[in-house]
């Protein structure tokens, strides 16, 4: 696949379970493509150099920075954004726990953190506080001081463990 600087490439991907298509220049970042072309404005863009984590999405189920990927690199991939979490009006368990524990204030960082947590909890269903903090080191939150976020993640992990046992 070759796309010249002047061309627009028809990027086709699966976004939150639906096949979507849009035109992108080679230099278009994935975060901008998701927001501006596909309307997934839950993807937040903070620093555009990989530091803040606000733009984190799942690519084929794995948490990554969408500001450090090109839209053309997402061609034929499966992308999940924060819009995938709630079931119509019912928030996911993770979102509910964030709400209960005051794990967000302005919410700018939250969409990215939630997506990291989805991948993280898949791999570490029973994490320690230190492991949660290590995962969160990839995100900047200027409001909460992280304590509520750590609590929310641990609470969901514990809840899911209990649910599994019954």
């Amino acid at each position: 696949m070759r796309v010249t600087a002047e061309q627009r490439f028809a990027v086709r991907l699966e976004l939150n379970g639906r096949t979507r298509e849009g035109l992108a220049e080679p230099r278009t970042q994935l975060c901008d493509f998701l927001r501006h072309d596909l309307g997934a404005t839950g993807v937040h863009v903070g620093c555009e150099h990989g530091v803040c984590g606000a733009c984190t999405v799942l690519v084929d189920g794995v948490a990554m920075r969408s500001c450090l990927m090109l839209a053309v690199q997402a061609h034929e991939r499966r992308i999940e954004t924060v819009e995938s979490l709630a079931d119509d009006d019912t928030l996911s368990d993770l979102q509910q726990a964030f709400r209960r524990n005051h794990a967000l204030q302005c919410g700018f960082c939250t969409a990215g953190i939630l997506m990291s947590c989805v991948d993280f909890l898949e791999r570490q269903p029973d994490p320690s506080e230190a492991e949660v903090r290590d995962m969160l080191s990839g995100h900047l939150c200027r409001c909460t001081g992280y304590t509520g976020i750590v609590q929310a993640v641990l609470e969901v992990a514990a809840q899911r463990q209990t649910n599994e046992e019954v």
Partner: peptide, 11 residues
């Protein structure tokens, strides 16, 4: 900021 334009090849 946004990158300057470039050609892209997926090898």
């Amino acid at each position: 900021m946004k990158p300057a334009a470039f050609d892209y090849v997926r090898a």
